[in-house]
Amino acid sequence: MTQRTTMRRWLRKGLAALCALACAAGVAACGSGGSDDGDVIKVGIKFDQPGLGFKKSGTYEGFDVDVARYIANQLGYTDSQIVFKEAPSKQREAMLQNGDVDMILATYSITDERKKAVDFAGPYFVAGQDLMVRANDDSIKGPQDLNGKRLCSVTGSTSAKVVKDRFAKEVQLMEQPGYAECATALLSGIVDAVTTDDIILAGLASASRGKLKVVGKPFTEEYYGVGIKKDAGSKEFATKINAAIEEMEKTGEWERAIENATEGTGYRPNPKYNPPKPDEGE
């Protein structure tokens, strides 16, 4: 074996070992990242909320998804560089703190308590707690009509508590693990109404194909923000995200995203608060 052949084999082995080490460290030149350089942005969304964040046959759709894509594109990422991850409500702060995602758009209301753990950009939408009923039911026109009625909300949600504390102390509460289960209970007549944020209800009503409707009398304000990790660079990151949100609103893409998400429901966001100016919820 010549010295030149030995050198070539040594170089090949060395390069293979280096590439293996790089792949283990997440360098996408050796992997299957969304682009040649592997530069991706990881975004937390809901997978089970029609009209907002919904995973369907390996694709993702909904208003939160559309806003996330727009922001990512404005930050310089192509659609193929966006990695969507499921962000259940109870895990959102931990996912940001652990670096599992770069930002979260998952009906994530900005609150003082949450701002102790994470930072926010936005808001990009202001929702209001509302009610959803069967399309042929005109007996419930607001939360004050719920006394003696059966109401469904998600286990651990504060929505039902707001109704009981402020409007209808005699309401019968049924809790389910998710709003899809509440919608099923409503369709089958087990409950008379479902309560949560109006845009979540609008997405469910849209998926029902005309069998359910949103009452349209919101009685709270929920400022949806883009959750980001609280660190030294979060202020600069939030500024860039806010610029993207403002651009989306100016171009009309924000309004089109709302219309696509709630098509057929007659839903319109409260014009008193929408579209919001970023930093309003801070």
Results as ranks from 00 to 15, higher is better:
Asp79Gln: 11
Val171Asp: 05
Asp137Tyr: 01
Arg69Cys: 05
Tyr60Glu: 13
Asp192Ile: 00
Thr5Trp: 12
Glu253Phe: 07
Ala17Ile: 11
Gly227Gln: 00
Ala183Asp: 07
Gly62Cys: 00
Ile45Asp: 03
Ala180Thr: 10
Gln81Arg: 14
Glu170Leu: 14
Gln49Asp: 09
Leu146Gln: 04
Ala257Asp: 00
Arg92Asp: 01
Ala121Arg: 00
Asn260Gly: 12
Gly227Met: 00
Asp137Lys: 02
Ala261Gln: 05
Asp165Gln: 15
Lys240Cys: 04
Asp79Ile: 07
Leu21Pro: 06
Glu259Gly: 09
Arg92Pro: 02
Phe125Glu: 10
Asp102Lys: 02
Phe125Trp: 08
Gly156Lys: 05
Ala117Lys: 13
Glu181Trp: 05
Ser206Glu: 07
Thr107Asp: 12
Gln172Lys: 15
Ala72Asn: 08
Tyr108Arg: 07
Gln144Trp: 12
Tyr224Leu: 08
Ala180Pro: 03
Lys13Trp: 13
Gly148Gln: 13
Asp66Met: 09
Arg8Phe: 13
Ala168Trp: 06
Asn136Lys: 15
Ser234Ala: 05
Ala232Asp: 11
Asn98Ala: 13
Ile140Val: 14
Lys42Ser: 12
Ala22Phe: 08
Lys161Leu: 15
Lys213Ala: 03
Arg150Asp: 10
Ile190Trp: 14
Tyr267Cys: 06
Glu255Gln: 15
Ala121Pro: 01
Ala205Gly: 09
Leu75Arg: 01
Gln91Arg: 15
Val43Tyr: 01
Ser32Glu: 15
Val162Leu: 15
Ala127Trp: 04
Ala87Val: 02
Arg268Phe: 07
Leu52Arg: 08
Gln172Asn: 13
Thr220Arg: 07
Gly53Val: 03
Glu175Arg: 11
Ser206Gln: 09
Cys152Ile: 04
Val118Tyr: 00
Ala16Gly: 12
Leu21Trp: 08
Arg166Pro: 06
Trp10Cys: 13
Gly128Ala: 11
Ser57Trp: 04
Tyr124Asn: 04
Ile258Glu: 02
Ala207Lys: 15
Asp79Asn: 10
Cys30Ser: 10
Gly142Trp: 03
Arg209Asn: 10
Ser234Leu: 00
Val40Ile: 05
Pro218Phe: 06
Gly31Met: 06
Arg8Pro: 04
Ala205Asn: 05
Gly128Trp: 06
Val133His: 03
Gly142Phe: 04
Gly38Trp: 02
Ile190Ser: 15
